[in-house]
Nucleic acid binder design. Structure first.
Lengths: 194, 194
DNA sequence: GCTGTAGCGGACCGTCGGTCCGTTTCTCTC
DNA sequence: GAGAGAAACGGACCGACGGTCCGCTACAGC
């Protein structure tokens, strides 16, 4: 059974309304009634579509992260660049994605019981672990990948920018240097400073 | 005016009850009525003492973190060890504290609007930044300190242990190697692998 | 003991996530 | 185009929970 036309229309309206509200007010200030009202539908419709609050935020994050996920998948599949380069590329592109959709990704991190910066994120995480292992076989690649990802959590980025007052540019530079440092072979005298 | 005897008794009872409930069930499953009932006091008493939910969790975190804060303050003041050694010592001791009180620190991170793994944490954070600057003048010490702390968030540790299935010992080793790596001078050929 | 006041407790309130079910609307078939 | 059946709708409703209020209690100072 294909999705009914009105159902599809409502789905889009709800996603758009929720996205706008969360961007404007932050997840904690947005309740499901607000979303329903802003979308011009009944509350029951929101829950019918998305199950619960978590489902709605997850659907939003999935939608917002689609472009980045495609890009990242391409990076992982691209054999023409070194593993180290690909790690840096993944980190910087994820950073851009997180910065651009900060309130949403933050909402997702807060609300979901799953981890990761995005839904459907696991294959990319696993790819990153694999790259880390290629760069330095014998290291704890999983721990290292997670250490990098910890610096890319929306909550962490938000903390650096809002609470520590770092400009986004400075955080970007730090993230890239950190990624470079994590994939620089320890014996490499040209390892950039973090 | 000194705190009245019954008030002090109730304060302790509430803290103990809340601590136990959060440890047993996690912060999300514990409501304020439960805490009041478990402490054998009225709900109003809980709110009178601690203001709100956040205040209660903050008081708990403050109490639980007291020992570690004292230790860390001592480490910062100890001039007989190198900056690099002190960074590693701070990281490993904080890791132990976080592991030992995981549910509580996690609750604190979730509930509070402040950041940091603990209340009264800022001076130690600042000391860590200072140490990073000593180790490598010219680096972005604040970013580097935060990068280390990001790996010591209760949520991150919980993620590694519970979701990734890493034994605590493995995470501990990773954290220590990461700290060592962050304070190893880039030109140092003996830098340990992360 | 008496008294003033800090403290107590639990009924009460508003909000919000989630459910339910009578009504509406779409789509498929003839 | 009309009728039937299913899918979707919507908002009244419910239970849980954080937080408040205020009449009552009991501690501490005299």
């Amino acid at each position: 059974m294909v999705e009914r036309a009105d159902a599809a229309r409502n789905r889009e309206a709800i996603l758009a309304a929720a996205m706008r509200l969360i961007r404007e007010q932050g997840i904690d200030a947005v309740c499901m009634d607000d979303v329903a009202a802003a979308a011009g539908v009944g509350k029951g419709t929101v829950f019918r579509r998305f199950g619960d609050r978590e489902g709605l935020v997850e659907a939003l994050a999935l939608q917002a992260g689609e472009g980045w996920r495609d890009f990242a998948t391409g990076v992982l599949a691209d054999g023409s660049t070194s593993a180290a380069e690909r790690v840096v590329l993944l980190a910087s592109s994820l950073f851009e994605h997180v910065v651009e959709t900060l309130p949403l990704v933050r909402a997702f991190e807060r609300v979901t019981s799953k981890r990761g910066c995005d839904s459907g994120f696991e294959p990319i995480r696993d790819g990153l672990v694999e790259l880390m292992a290629q760069v330095d076989p014998g290291c704890d690649a999983e721990f290292r990948a997670e250490a990098l990802l910890a610096n890319l959590r929306a909550e962490h980025v938000h903390h650096l920018v809002e609470r520590c007052g770092m400009p986004v540019e400075r955080v970007r530079a730090g993230v890239i240097r950190l990624a470079e440092g994590l994939v620089a072979a320890p014996w490499d005298a040209t390892m950039p400073k973090l």
